[in-house]
Design a protein around this nucleic acid. Structure first.
Lengths: 158, 158
DNA sequence: CTGATATCATTTGCATACGAATGAATTTGA
DNA sequence: TCAAATTCATTCGTATGCAAATGATATCAG
């Protein structure tokens, strides 16, 4: 019995049984984008379980203002990786809660300066220890060595 | 700067602590959550540059349906990591474009079955090669060895 | 000096993403 | 068996996230 070519059944069997190589099948769950999205989801969930009254983007805005002090809304957006439309919404909500205040730039009238209020400063100082715990819990599945490797490689992709 | 002014004592404290790895300063840009968010943003941007008429979640839904065939909306959501409210919106939009069709489960009347249309099947078969290119471009900053390490560690976090 | 360009902020529209509440249908368990 | 619990889907509200268009202001080039 010769085997001049693979039958349709053989092809099906090969696809079903293949465990490595398997270059003809597309597995969503192995794609970096899909896993990245899930890892991000998990982190946001951990964040919410520790800090329920602030979102990660809101926290990022407060933390950066605490770090660098007053800056323009646009510059803040650049520093925390948000486009102009997104950062406006985040600042509007922080402003409504009295955690930041805005003022017009005296010289360049296009700019909107943003800064922490005393309440905002108090909030971020209180939350930073929780943020450390969030980072720790997010990275808990990795050993210390794996964490260092992971952060190094992740930074290369970001 | 965290404070409007800094005393000599504060500066001394900072210098002493700096020798110990600066553990009292919180740097947003070093936090895993922030970098994860940026890496995800970059991936979505790469995705959009290759596949302009479909979002990553929409692609995920089509790819999973192509992989497993007809399933319930809820089960599909579980497989592609979307809650019920989110998956409904995604399926509604794919349905409006004729890429999927829905039907009622004959036995369990709560379930909404979702399946690819011929157009949907054609679309996902056409797009999968592009998705491979997206994955490749996303991982381009890493060597092959780094990619393997990164995906292994990322999967542990997801 | 002035027209072209660039920057900053806002607005609109669309698409995730998720908590919470609701209703319909099914399954469980005493 | 039948009331309680669970599951599936939908809806509502809130919050990113980004593209595109717009208006105000600032900068640049000739």
């Amino acid at each position: 019995m010769g085997r001049p070519e693979m039958s349709a059944e053989d092809n099906l069997l090969r696809l079903v049984e293949a465990e490595d190589g398997d270059e003809n099948n597309y597995h969503l769950q192995d794609q970096v984008g899909f896993i990245l999205r899930k890892a991000h989801q998990r982190h946001v969930s951990i964040f919410a379980s520790h800090i329920g009254d602030l979102t990660p983007p809101q926290f990022a805005a407060l933390a950066k203002l605490y770090d660098i002090g007053e800056t323009s809304q646009n510059q803040l957006g650049t520093l925390i990786a948000m486009d102009a439309a997104t950062v406006k919404g985040v600042i509007d909500r922080l402003k409504a809660r009295g955690l930041v205040e805005v003022s017009k730039h005296e010289v360049d009238k296009r700019r909107l300066l943003v800064n922490l209020t005393p309440e905002g400063r108090e909030a971020i100082e209180r939350l930073i220890p929780l943020a450390r715990a969030i980072t720790e819990e997010t990275l808990a599945p990795l050993t210390a060595k794996e964490t260092a490797t992971f952060l190094r490689l992740l930074a290369k992709l970001a």
